Amino acid sequence: MVYEDESSNDLSSLDISSSSDSMMYRIPTSIDDEDYMGIENSALDVCSEHGLLLERRVAFEGFETSRRFLVCAQPEERVMDLRYLKVNAQGAERSSAVVVVMKSEIEKKEAEIMEVKGKYSVLMNLAEAQGRVIRTQKANHLKEKEKLSEENYNLKVWVDKLTNSEEKLNDDIMVLNRHIDGVKKGIENLIKRMDELKLHIADQLKAVEKNQEKLKMTRDILDG
């Protein structure tokens, strides 16, 4: 015989099958629980079928997991008391309704999970597409940066060449200025020399005039 512990109000989820005029019950898998194990010491709790004391068990199977129950100490297959089954029939019906509701809720949750998965898939696709766009933009930016760096380098080379040309031109201008200064000095010396020559010529002309006057006076004396 199987009896429900006071901590539970129904045996609706126990596996019950009909065999001729009696109801057979398969005892669910149980585990050892230090807080609930061994023989039930209450003298009132005995198996009505065999008159034996009852054992304490803790279920570890399906929806029965963690439920406490009492079972006949006789190890052979137990027969459930039909009177006990009738008492708990309404509880079984309620539990069946609860199972239906739970299944409905589970289906709703699964539908919600599928919806969330769909949204997650959409978000992942969007994120992947955005990632591709970002990678493409980054690659284009790197290419533009490399191109700009190359152009800056070429510009720097041209600036350096122009600077060198300017420095060379400045050197040439300095040399030319020195030459011009030399030419100016030469011209000044030439002008000075010409002035001196003019003075010398003027002196020579005066001397010639004096000589002509002396020559004329000499002729006049000779003619007179």
Rank of each mutant, 00 (worst) to 15 (best):
E61H: 06
M102W: 08
G51M: 02
M80S: 09
R67C: 11
D81F: 09
L52N: 09
R56Y: 00
C47K: 05
G38C: 06
A89N: 08
N88A: 08
P75F: 04
A43C: 06
D45Q: 10
V101C: 09
R57Q: 07
E77G: 05
C47M: 03
V79R: 13
Y36C: 01
E77K: 12
F63A: 06
A73P: 00
S66D: 06
A89I: 07
P75D: 08
N88R: 15
C72I: 07
A92V: 13
E49R: 10
A97F: 06
L53V: 04
E76R: 11
L85G: 07
R78H: 15
R94C: 05
L85K: 11
D81L: 07
V100P: 00
S95T: 11
E93V: 15
L44K: 14
R83H: 15
F69H: 00
V87G: 08
G91M: 05
R68V: 04
E93A: 12
E40S: 06
G91V: 04
F69R: 00
V71S: 07
R57A: 01
R83K: 14
G62N: 00
G38Q: 05
S95L: 14
S66V: 02
P75A: 06
E93M: 13
A89Q: 10
A43F: 05
E61N: 02
K103V: 12
N41W: 07
E61Q: 03
A43R: 13
V79C: 10
S95R: 15
G62F: 00
E64A: 14
Y36I: 01
E49Y: 11
E49Q: 10
G38M: 02
A59K: 03
M37H: 13
A92Y: 12
E61F: 03
V101K: 15
E93T: 10
A89E: 11
L44A: 09
R67I: 01
L82E: 15
L70I: 05
E49H: 12
S96N: 13
E77V: 10
E55T: 04
S104W: 07
G91I: 05
C72P: 04
F60V: 02
M37A: 14
C72Q: 05
V71M: 03
C72T: 05
I39N: 07
V58W: 03
C47S: 03
L82Q: 13
R68C: 05
A97N: 10
R83I: 10
L85E: 12
N41Y: 07
L52R: 02
A97C: 08
S96P: 00
V71D: 01
L70G: 04
P75R: 09
A43V: 08
S95G: 08
A59F: 02
A92R: 15
R78I: 11
V87A: 14
E40Y: 03
L85D: 12
V99I: 09
G91D: 02
F60Q: 03
Q74V: 08
V100M: 10
R78P: 15
L85Q: 13
S48L: 07
L82K: 15
T65L: 01
F63V: 03
L82D: 13
Y84T: 11
C47Q: 03
V58I: 02
V87W: 13
D81Y: 04
V58Y: 00
R94A: 10
A97E: 10
